[in-house]
Design a protein around this nucleic acid. Structure first.
Length: 729
DNA sequence: CAGAATACTTTTTTT
DNA sequence: AAGTATTCTG
């Protein structure tokens, strides 16, 4: 038997060895999805069905792309490895970026176009509003931002969107202006990378024909997370079974039960759409789970069975039942965290590796209490996500200087650093500059026209940039970065600042990140220096969030959100904060299908665990500086009770034999969660405020008060339950 | 203009 | 609670 196929089960093998055609692989959690993907590529290469340059593999995260590349290298015989460089592997955004760089002219972009991350995009929008004299009240920047992004992610341009609401009427012209501004400045936002490259392929038939001929196989991971634009983007490369037009075969792998990015436009329906539109004959289900013990899998299956909108599948395993799922009720979040830390301490003493323990939570804000407890217990941990390296203020400043070297028109970058460190260029000067420019002239031309001190200060800045630009043209990247950090005055500035130490360290880290990057590029056979390498580095910074790497040699407990845990697995998982309003999250209760998405998130969380799973919740939790009273999550009730072991909650008492309790309705101490028959999490209607959800109930009798969250315009209201005309929904 | 003080929002998830 | 944005003061 072929080596690549060894150890695969019949379904996996069938998927890996499919003849060239469109294929849909429905792969449940822990069913060996990544293995199938990489084995498929290895199979294509080794059987000579395709050369590396004829293969494209698309993922959603950089982590997944790296994982795929490295596992593939491990699978292939030495002789085939060097060829891997010619394969296109990456995220949608990285691959779209690659296309646009190659064809920037045809795409109507300057060669050195820069990428705006969400923060940059927001500041570009604010600047736009200021320039057009539109108040932020009449057009809230954040709303405008999501309006723009949501439409672009559906593949739309302003002229294709009907001004059917007052909001759309107001936003559409602003969106148009925003696009014009980006175009002028030579920058693109995340969605634009995809949209622009999609339009390029749509418009340019020769180009499309070229890529359709080039790529024979396109493999897509996490297909349930694709949005409308990404689907269309893939279509551009694919063979069309209806018209018979040649193109790539799509090999799409996904799991509708793990679709957790609906909030940013992902459509799990794309799985079905793909099957129909591409007349997919080869649909293969991978339902055998290799990861979790039986009880964990049974819990996951039971939870997800509560969802109505799903293709339907049932994971099975040959593993034994394993341990029961441990459940812990804490009186407050600090106690929950201490419980987690204590249990982890025991596990570590029993010899469990810290790397094999994960603490998961719904929202990043929850990590604080957990970190506190772990720190106190002396347990090493690593927090994933949260503030990213390239998002730090000092790093963004340095990157802005670097961007200006390549793209003088990048106004987002210009405004970020024109007066940082302070050099006497204040609001007044910038206003004068804006007046001089009249929305037309470029910055330097306008600056020369400015007289007096403001003019001199501005020209000083521009000369600084020009000098740095000249000095760095041919310099190796790490030195280039260092020169800019020093020459810009950033280093001196932070050195003089009282708490500037951390920031200086981060700037140093940016220099080493540049070194690492150069080394990585060299290993991929890419050698360059000066501005050429800088361009690559800036793309890398924009497209990779820059998660800090684990410290070598140090094992640590992993802390992360449930979202961040997708695709990972651990021997022991602590799933914390299982409370109504938190998990499922408050905001999800309004959205259409919101709770189902939360349930899928729960499913993802549970299926991360291999051997042992802890579920915990806290009656009282500090959130946003407020004490909130919570009921246990509905998801707890969806797990068959015989799978659970209550470590401390009231429901633990067993009647007679070993009958476990049937419901987890524990809690209410008199003052928390429920009063006068009302409980948090309940949906209610108020004649004046409309529909809402009870966040918390406090007090009792005539004084019982509820905080109720109504629609966006109303917000949260405090209501006396004895008085307020609330109606249960 | 710069830095300090105050006010205000944001708090789900990510390329 | 904590971070950002705005206003105030020297």
């Amino acid at each position: 038997m072929h080596e690549v196929l060894q150890g695969l089960n019949p379904e996996q093998r069938a998927a890996v060895t499919l003849p060239p055609q469109h294929a849909l692989i429905l792969a449940g959690a822990g069913s060996g999805k990544t293995r199938v993907l990489t084995s498929r590529i290895a199979w294509l290469l080794e059987t000579g069905e395709a050369g590396p340059h004829e293969i494209m593999a698309v993922t959603f995260t950089n982590k997944a792309a790296r994982e795929m590349a490295s596992r593939l290298a491990g699978l292939l015989p030495e002789a085939l490895r060097p060829g891997l460089r010619r394969m296109w592997v990456g995220t949608f955004h990285a691959l779209a970026n690659r296309l646009l760089r190659i064809h920037h002219q045809a795409a109507g972009l300057p060669q050195m176009f820069q990428i705006l991350d969400t923060a940059d995009q927001l500041s570009a929008i604010k600047r736009l509003l200021k320039r057009l004299n539109v108040s932020e009240q009449s057009a809230p920047p954040r709303e405008l931002l999501s309006f723009i992004n949501a439409h672009k992610e559906q593949g739309l341009r302003p002229d294709k969107v009907a001004a059917e609401s007052r909001r759309a009427e107001r936003f559409l012209p602003l969106w148009q202006e925003y696009e014009a501004q980006c175009q002028r400045e030579g920058v693109v936002d995340f969605a634009e990378l995809l949209l622009r490259s999609d339009e390029l392929l749509a418009r340019d038939e020769a180009l499309r024909a070229h890529y359709r001929a080039r790529f024979r196989h396109v493999l897509v991971d996490e297909f349930q997370d694709t949005n409308a634009l990404q689907y269309r983007w893939l279509q551009r490369f694919a063979a069309d079974p209806v018209t018979g037009e040649a193109g790539a075969f799509l090999f799409c792998v996904g799991d509708d039960d793990q679709s957790i990015y609906g909030f940013r436009g992902a459509l799990a329906r794309n799985l079905m759409r793909f099957e129909q539109e591409f007349r997919v004959q080869a649909v293969i289900r991978l339902e055998r789970n290799y990861r979790s013990h039986g009880n964990i899998l049974a819990a996951a299956n039971a939870i997800i069975a509560h969802n109505r909108e799903r293709l339907g599948k049932n994971l099975w395993t040959e593993a034994d039942e394993g341990e029961p799922i441990r459940v812990f009720q804490a009186p407050e979040d600090g106690a929950e965290a201490r419980f987690v830390a204590e249990e982890i301490g025991n596990l570590l003493r029993e010899g469990v590796s810290a790397d094999e323990i994960a603490v998961l939570y719904r929202a990043n804000a929850q990590s604080r209490a957990l970190e506190h407890a772990l720190l106190a217990a002396g347990i090493p941990y690593r927090v994933h996500g949260g503030q990213r390296f390239f998002d730090r203020a000092e790093i963004k400043h340095a990157l802005a200087y670097l961007r200006l070297l390549l793209l003088p028109d990048d106004e987002t970058a210009f405004l970020r650093v024109v007066n940082f460190p302070p050099r006497g260029i204040g609001a007044r000067t910038l206003e004068a500059l804006a007046a001089q420019r009249d929305g037309q002239t470029d910055i330097s031309a306008a600056a020369t026209r400015l007289a007096g001190r403001p003019g001199a200060a501005l020209q000083g800045f521009l000369q600084l940039i020009e000098r740095l630009r000249e000095q760095t043209r041919e310099v190796p990247l790490p030195e280039l970065v260092e020169r800019v950090i020093a020459g810009s005055g950033l280093r001196t500035h932070y050195a003089a600042e009282r708490d500037g130490g951390d920031r200086l360290e981060n700037l140093d880290e940016l220099v080493s990140a540049a070194s690492d990057f150069v080394a990585q590029m060299a290993s991929e056979g890419i050698e360059a220096q000066g501005h050429e390498m800088l361009a690559l580095f800036l793309q890398h910074a924009a497209l990779e969030s820059g998660e800090q790497q684990a410290e070598a040699g140090q094992t640590a407990v992993q802390l992360m959100t449930v979202h961040a845990s997708k695709g990972l697995e651990f021997d022991v998982v602590f799933l914390t904060g299982l409370e109504e309003g938190l998990f499922p999250h408050q905001n999800s209760l309004y959205a259409d299908g919101g709770v189902e998405e939360e349930r899928r998130l729960m499913y993802v969380a549970v299926t991360r665990a291999k051997k042992r799973l802890y579920l915990s919740w806290s009656d009282i939790r500090m959130l946003h500086g407020q004490t909130e009273y919570h009921q246990p999550s509905r998801f707890l009730e969806e797990i068959p009770p015989e799978l659970l072991l209550w470590l401390n909650a009231k429901r633990r008492e067993r009647k007679g034999g070993d009958l476990a309790p049937s419901r987890v309705t524990a809690v209410p101490q008199s003052s928390s969660g429920a009063a006068n028959g009302w409980r948090s999490g309940e949906r209610v209607r108020h004649p004046k405020f409309g529909e809402g959800v009870i966040l918390a109930v406090e007090g009792a009798g005539a004084h019982a008060q509820a905080s109720v969250k109504f629609g966006p315009e109303v917000g949260v209201k405090q209501l006396l339950l004895s008085v307020a005309p609330l109606e249960r929904l």
